[in-house]
Amino acid sequence: MTDNLDALLDECIDRINRGQSLEECLARYPEHAERLEPLLRSILDIRATCSPMPSPAAKAAARRRLDAALHNDNLKRGPKMHRRAFALPFGWPKAWVAIAAVALLAIIAGISSWALMPGGTPAPAFAQANFRLLISDDENAIGDFDHLNVTITSIRVHSASSGDWIDLEPAVSEVDLVGLQGWCFSTLSM
């Protein structure tokens, strides 16, 4: 029973970390709700109270230090290393390339997943800034899938500076989106 509780609790925590409410989570396990609820409520209370909001000034200062270190690192590696490292015919920022690749992979994956939605009309939405890929207008619907396999057939990135499109060969052709929820999503960019 303890093993079972460990596993159920773990699953509930995953769901809560993905944005589900305590009530939604407990509704999935009504027969265990009585045991799960006080545990989950305790930890949610602690998280709500003891989660500091980092000061914007400290965050910005840390970002400046990271940018400065990146800049110094660039200088150390030298221009030759740079050209070899990113064998693309543009002078566009490398971070942008990764961002574009991730965003495009998301869009391709999202479009491919339409056909796999169980019932209802899917309403995919994309927010490029945070690379969120929503596969349904039902919150956390991905939790309803055991697998959500998509096929990535092509990747195109658009250069803002030259206006050209570049075709890239996908490193991964088959992806199970169930394993790429939340921050795991960034896996695709590598």
Partner: peptide, 30 residues
Amino acid sequence: MPEVEPGRSSVSRDRGTEIELARALLTNLY
């Protein structure tokens, strides 16, 4: 779930490219 291996993409063929991508990813993850 396929294993995603850095370096297998046509974008990242050598170690230098992998490091560049890792740098880009690091700044995104910040």
